[in-house]
């Protein structure tokens, strides 16, 4: 997969253009400033650095938003108003399945970008598709959980605890759903437009987003489900 069939020189040029920091290819430390990296001495950064950097900042803000919902959950964890508590709503087998699907999807998402780096459209699409299907499985399992809870009368209207539970888990589910729509759009773009510069930038951002959702899920899995089942 690493053989792109391009002459080595073109390949080397491409790598420098796309990754002026030469991450993993040079030692850290005091060196001559790198063109296009956006350091003061060399002028504005190139588009790839700017897009990735901006998206990281967005991810930070998104994680701050999640932290509010985590905080609300921490505050209202015991505010059950005489209704069901954490132990009554956690079904670990289903959550294990959800977690497995999401973690695996992060792995396939990484593989898709490895294929993108090798400019291999077929494998990029295959791995993106698997990622999307695993995400769909995750959202489906979560919906099933919500429906089964609702059928037992466990709804956000019941208590402060359930409000913060459905709010936090639901916000993550909403993020995965929106990411899935983004993924479908990206697959169409890769198919019809190929690996243009801006398409690759968007794929970088999509990868970052998908992995970030995974990290947030680790927090939810631990704080809501694992700690809830033991409470």
């Amino acid at each position: 997969m690493s053989d792109t069939g391009l002459p080595a020189a073109i390949e080397a040029l491409r790598r420098v253009r796309e990754d002026p920091h030469r991450l993993g290819h040079r030692a850290h430390g005091a060196e001559a400033p790198v063109e296009g990296a956006g350091h003061g001495a060399t002028g504005p950064a190139n588009k790839r650095i700017v897009v990735g950097y901006g998206f990281w900042i967005f991810l930070l803000s998104d994680i701050v938003m999640f932290s509010c919902f985590f905080a609300a959950f921490a505050v209202q964890r015991d505010a059950t108003a005489g209704g069901p508590g954490p132990r009554d709503i956690v079904e670990l087998p289903r959550v294990a399945l959800e977690t497995g699907a999401l973690l695996l999807s992060s792995y396939t998402c990484g593989l898709s970008f490895a294929a993108t780096n090798a400019r291999n459209k077929l494998w990029t699409q295959i791995f993106l598709l698997i990622t999307g299907l695993l995400g769909l499985a995750f959202v489906g399992l979560e919906l099933q959980e919500f429906i089964s809870l609702a059928s037992r009368g466990i709804t956000p209207q019941r208590s402060g605890f359930l409000t913060s539970f459905f709010g936090l888990v639901g916000l993550h589910g909403l993020h995965v759903t929106v990411a899935g729509m983004w993924l479908a759009t990206m697959m169409a773009q890769v198919q019809l437009k190929g690996f243009r510069r801006e398409i690759i930038h968007r794929l970088i951002c999509f990868n970052l987003f998908w992995h970030a959702l995974d990290i947030v899920w680790i927090g939810i899995f631990t704080i809501v489900y694992l700690m809830g089942s033991g409470a």
């Binding site: 938003m65 509010c68 108003a81 209207q157 709010g167």
Partner: peptide
């Protein structure tokens, strides 16, 4: 993002009867 989250919570309370900030049901 804190503003976004807080306003979203109040909207959920108002529209769907959730209990983030109500003075009943926790």
């Amino acid at each position: 993002p804190i503003l976004t989250a807080t306003l979203a919570m109040l909207s959920l309370d108002r529209v769907f009867g959730w209990h983030y900030f109500t003075n009943a049901a926790g």
